[in-house]
Design a protein around this nucleic acid. Sequence first.
DNA 1: ACTAAAAATTAGCCTAGACTAAACATTAAA
DNA 2: TTTAATGTTTAGTCTAGGCTAATTTTTAGT
Lengths: 239, 239
Amino acid sequence: MPRPSATVKTAPSRAWEDYLKIIYKLESLTPANKGVQTKDLAERLAVSKASVTNMLKKLAEEALIQHEPYYGVRLTDSGRKIAMKMIRNHRILESYLVARLGYSWDEVDEEAETLEHFLSDKLVDRMWNDLGQPTHDPHGSPIPDVDGHIENKPLPALSHLEHNTPVRVARIKNRSPEELRYLASIGLHLGSRIVVKNQAPFNGPLLIEIDGAQLHALDHRMGLAIHVTPAHEADSPHV
Amino acid sequence: MPRPSATVKTAPSRAWEDYLKIIYKLESLTPANKGVQTKDLAERLAVSKASVTNMLKKLAEEALIQHEPYYGVRLTDSGRKIAMKMIRNHRILESYLVARLGYSWDEVDEEAETLEHFLSDKLVDRMWNDLGQPTHDPHGSPIPDVDGHIENKPLPALSHLEHNTPVRVARIKNRSPEELRYLASIGLHLGSRIVVKNQAPFNGPLLIEIDGAQLHALDHRMGLAIHVTPAHEADSPHV
DNA sequence: ACTAAAAATTAGCCTAGACTAAACATTAAA
DNA sequence: TTTAATGTTTAGTCTAGGCTAATTTTTAGT
C-alpha cells in the first residue's frame, strides 16, 4: 500500500509556479517602492482576491516571496528562480514549436502555457540545443539562461518614437493570437523595418510604413506593445 | 471576479485519464469473463484500494466504465476512447523524442508519462506527421489511430519459442529503463535477429544468439516481455 | 481631518482526490 | 458447510486550491 509523502520537500505545484511567474511579470510593471498587488494578481490569474491572499501566505511560508500584508508582494531569489525557469521553459518551447513543427507565432502561447510546467530539464535543454541555443523566442522576448539570468535591455515602443525615423521590430509583448495574426497579415514581423509617419492626437492611431511599402494605421495600444531597435543597429534581429 | 464553472462538461482530469489508461492495459491481462480488479488498479496506480473504489464510482457515473461491484470494471466505448488517446499521445511523443531529440528508448517513458496528459491534439498530430505517420513506437508498440483503433496482433514471446528458429525482435513490453539499457548494451534492439538456443528447466534463463554473434543468457521473465516475428516475415520491423 | 471607495484580509465552505480503519462479500480449502 | 483468506466497500479524515461574505486597512477626495 502507498506510503505517506512525509516531509520530502515537495516540488512546487503548477499553481505555485503560475503565481510566481505572474508575480515576476507584474514586478516589472510595479513602481520600485511598491510590491505587486493582490488585486492585480487576482485579475491576471482569474481568481478571487481571497484565493490570492490565501496562496500568498503559503508562498511566503516557503520563502518564495516576501509578503508585507496590505503593501504587496515581491519575489525572493528562490521564488524568482522558479519564475525564470517557467519563462525559460515557455520561451524555448515556443521557439521549438515554431522552428521545428510549423507553428505560427500566434499559436504557441496557448500550448506553452500548459506545457511549461511539465517539461523536464532534459527535454528543455535538448530543444534549446537542437535550436542552436537561441537567446530570444518567436516574439523577440529574451530567454533566461539556465541560472535564471535574463537580458533586460529596455527597448522603445513604436508609440514613443520620433516620426520618420526608421526602426526594426524587435519584440511584441503580450498580444492576443488575434492581434498577432493581424500583425502578420499586414506584413509586420520581427525584423520588419518600420517608419512611423504620424500619430493622431489624443493617443490616436499611428500611421506606419512597413518594409518601405504599405501604409497602415495602427492602434495606439498596439504601438505600445511593439518594441523596436534603431534600424541600423542589427540588420535582422535575433530569431 | 471569476465565474463558477457551472455544468460545463468538464474535461477529464489527469487522474481520470490515468485510471482509464491502466484499466485498458489491465483488461488485456484479464480473463474475458472477469472485469479488472480494484486491487490490481490500486497496485498499478500506487494508491489505496479505497481510493480506487471511490474513483471508480465517479468514472461509472460519467459512463466511462461499467462497474459491477465485487466483479470488477470494464471500459465503455467512451472510456476506451480516452484511454486510447492517452496511449496515442504517449507513443507518438516517445517516437518523437527518439527520432528528433536524441532520446534513447529507456529515457522516453518517464517524459511521456506526464506529458501525455497535456499535449494538444494539434501538437500530437504535428509530431506524428513530422515523423511520417509512424505506426509503432520505439519499443515496437502499436500507435492507435486518431479514432482510437489499435493494431492487435498477438506476437509470440521469446520464452515461448521453439529452439533454433530464427526470429526478429518486434516489441519489448513494460521493461524498466535499467532493463532496456541492459538489452541495448548486449545489442538487442528492435529488429535484432534472435535464435533461442536453449532454455534451462523450471522457467530458467534462455540462451540466445543475437544477430548471429554473441550468446547471452536472458532471464525468463525478460524473455516473456520480448515479442518477436518470424525472421523471414519482415526483414526489419516498423521503426 | 473625515469619509467614502478601494484593496486586502479573515472566516467559513466546497470539491477533487488522496488516506486509514472497519465492515462486508466472495472464493477456496478443510 | 463452515471458515480463513482475500478482495471490496463504507465511513470518516485530510490537503490543495478554489469560492463568498463580512471585516479591516489603506488611500483619495472633499
